[in-house]
Design a protein around this nucleic acid. Structure first.
Lengths: 110, 110
DNA sequence: GACGACGTATAGAGACTCTATACTAATACC
DNA sequence: GGTATTAGTATAGAGTCTCTATACGTCGTC
């Protein structure tokens, strides 16, 4: 069932998107490329996963978007973090810390 | 929407169940208690999440079950790892390593 | 004998990701 | 000039997983 690469853990996509936008605004495929870059190629987010997530996160008030021109002179929608988005990134980062610590602890158990 | 404690990341429950059974066979609630123990109380797996997962994993051939008596003289179904289950634990452990490394790397990015 | 704790079970809902497909516009190519 | 390819966004549908809520039987206790 699972394709060659790892399936994304549900819940981590939001975190990665928020993180991808922390330095500068990007358009959809730019976010996708940025995530691949900062995860050393581990996560390749396909459009069918990315765009619904972006819309959901904009709905939630974490992202704001505006149409513009891409590096290749194409029409593209640029996303940036809102203040609520930065707070959400903080929250999810802490949450990830708790969870990964807990699982690391579990895997160390005898 | 999310209750006081953290929602489990989807996909991590299997790993925790497999790990909880690596040392000895346990019954359902025993597995639940074991998971809470080895994650330092971070994850409390409710019956409604646990039992469907156990059935699914037995169906997949990772667990084998047999009825017996609990510490409190109650009728209880004990689960143990099969060989395929131990292989699966190996696989999921490596997978977790890859994923947590990738996300840690992403969170360190500027 | 009633009540709570132990132990298992299922139904239903909700959320998320994946695959596949579609569409438009700009560039490259012959 | 016309055709194919790439960049970019979008959605539908399916599948999977976890959560809440509820139910049922039984052992022990008061």
């Amino acid at each position: 069932m699972s394709p060659q690469p790892a399936n994304l853990l549900q819940g981590t996509l939001d975190l990665l998107i928020l993180k991808a936008l922390v330095s500068e605004q990007r358009h959809g495929l730019g976010i996708s490329r940025r995530i691949e870059q900062i995860t050393n190629g581990t996560f390749q987010v396909k459009p069918g996963s990315l765009f619904p997530a972006l819309h959901r996160m904009e709905e939630a008030g974490w992202l704001a978007s505006s149409w513009g021109e891409s590096e290749n002179n194409r029409r593209a929608k640029f996303y940036q973090l809102t203040k609520a988005g930065r707070r959400q990134l903080e929250t999810e980062q802490q949450e990830w810390g708790r969870i990964s610590l807990a699982i690391a602890s579990a895997l160390k158990a005898t």
